[in-house]
Amino acid sequence: MELFWERLRENGSIPIYCPKVEDMYAKVEKIISDMNYSPTAFYPRDVLPTLIPRLLQMFGMVWGRSDSFDVRRARLGLMGVDFGVAETGSLVLFTSNTVERLLSCLPEVFVGVVYTSRLLPDLASTLGYVSQALKGGRCVSIITGPSQTADIEQRFVRGVHGPRQVYVLVVEGGPAIQ
């Protein structure tokens, strides 16, 4: 957990700790209000069953499975991810359709939510899950920090084609890994 935290910071993600699920709502609300309530897209994933209804209640927006055109308009994408990888400070995302994936690609800000029970030590230990996911027709995205480039005069700039900011809400507990 400490390592995950340190590595997230190192790669430019912004980790936020949530001791209880309820803390997460407040944090999300803060992020959304900081962005002046810009269009926000959530993705209903079973990783975080309680999150979506609550957010729906708060903000009244959610976009469904195949509607990629709304994702296009979103400035913020929020979703639960499948795993966290401590050694690299990465989020592992298994997606079963492109809209789901685009939520972490198109918006300027991405908020990924991961339970502490879903933290893995390193990349190699994701292998079994990744291979399972591929067999099940998922696309695997491993996200390590914001989108970035140093192509112009070697100067570091964030947010090229993907999010400029990546928040990682680390929520204590959660379902155990099967």
């Binding site: 590595r7 190192e10 790669n11 050694e87 690299t88 400070g89 990465s90 997606t95 079963s96 359709n97 492109t98 789901e100 994936r101 990349l123 990744v130 591929l134 027709g137 998922r138 696309c139 695997v140 995205s141 491993i142 996200i143 390590t144 920090g145 914001p146 989108s147 970035q148 993907g162």
Partner: peptide
């Protein structure tokens, strides 16, 4: 010199709506 680049994508012809 990074531990990992910002993105590593792994996909097969059956991933998502491919197919």
């Amino acid at each position: 010199g990074q531990r990992l680049t910002s993105y590593l994508t792994i996909l097969t012809p059956r991933s998502e709506d491919l197919g």
